[in-house]
Write a protein that binds this DNA or RNA. Structure first.
Lengths: 195, 195
DNA sequence: GATTTTTGCACCTAGGTGGAAATT
DNA sequence: TCAATTTCCACCTAGGTGCAAAAA
């Protein structure tokens, strides 16, 4: 079934590795966060169409709280446990390294975020802009943003409707410092070649 | 001593790892070429200044024949041996992956060509544009080119004087399929961390 | 035969994994 | 004690080396 409706003048975005994301999502995806930063697995990867081939765009991901809860793993299940910590600091945006670039470039091939890293280290960012700062035991929702920009990469705030945001619920995850659900651990081992 | 004179309106280029290049040059540098492509060691790396920070440039390296001879290693020395094979085909240009980019970008940090690969495979290029095709037992001279371009990366041939070329004789080398001079082999082992 | 090129390989760098143990 | 985090480590992928043997 289609992942997004086809609307004239709008970009269409498909989640490339959706089947894999769904396997994890069934068990409630967990992502490890570490001080020095940990890649996501699965990682975000998109196909995009419907852009103006000659226009310029920035494409980036941000990660927002998916719900207002603090979570804990108890009795083999994830259960809400108090309110989320909303005293938030730290970068939650990861600009794709190809940005800015033309619509033709973005539509030519998969747009992968394999080098995006998750961390719980609010302080000294070693790789500025490469690290997304999250809080453990909170549930998050990644989002994709497509922003039309001028040729020099600057945004033109005088022109409305140049920002498009895409959300895929199957990419939600709970940030952890160690895996809680052994089903998730096994899925990581089975599918991540580094394991 | 200065590597290039300071001329107003002209870019100045410095060879970053010149001391290392000179160590090899004293013994006549050799570079391995293979079918699937071999990196150079030392690799080309430059600092550049004197560009217009807001103008756009393509920066690339090409590799030309350094002399009209075919060479052979005999009695522990390189000696000319007949004429160079000038029936030439295959790409000899390697565009820096950051191209096109602004003068500010190019002047901000070292411009390294560490991923440039040398091959003797004229035919199927697996990495188009990433491989420089050379002939074994010929002597070559790499050159750096700085070309001012329009914002979209296209050249403007109607404007003269937008191309600048820089040549460093200490980066000359003879292409080989196996090292001939053991002094060169030892220098590679001593300085290349992969050995 | 002699020279040049190719192939396979052990070894290296570089860095991404989960697990166990130690720490907080 | 317990839960959560950090550290260390063996093991993995990925790919750049020179070398010896084989092939051309």
């Amino acid at each position: 079934s289609a992942q997004a409706g086809l609307v004239p003048g709008k970009a269409q975005v498909y989640l490339c590795n959706r089947a894999l994301w769904l396997k994890f999502h069934r068990h409630q995806t967990e992502m490890i966060i570490t001080k020095q930063g940990r890649r996501m697995f699965p990682f975000l990867s998109f196909n995009i169409s419907g852009l103006d081939p000659t226009a310029h765009y920035n494409i980036f991901v941000d990660v927002i709280l998916a719900d207002p809860n603090h979570w804990r793993f108890q009795g083999g299940k994830w259960v809400p446990c108090g309110k989320a910590d909303t005293n938030v600091t730290g970068n939650r945006v990861y600009m794709h390294p190809d940005s800015p670039n033309t619509g033709a470039h973005w539509m030519r091939q998969e747009i992968s975020f394999g080098k995006l890293k998750l961390t719980n280290n609010k302080g000294g960012s070693n790789n500025p802009g490469q690290m997304v700062v999250l809080q453990s035991l909170h549930k998050y929702q990644p989002r994709l943003h497509v922003v039309e920009v001028n040729e020099d990469g600057t945004e033109d705030s005088s022109q409305p409707g140049r920002v498009q945001t895409f959300t895929f619920p199957e990419t939600q995850f709970i940030a952890v410092t160690a895996y809680q659900n052994t089903d998730i651990t096994q899925l990581k081992i089975d599918h991540n070649p580094f394991c």
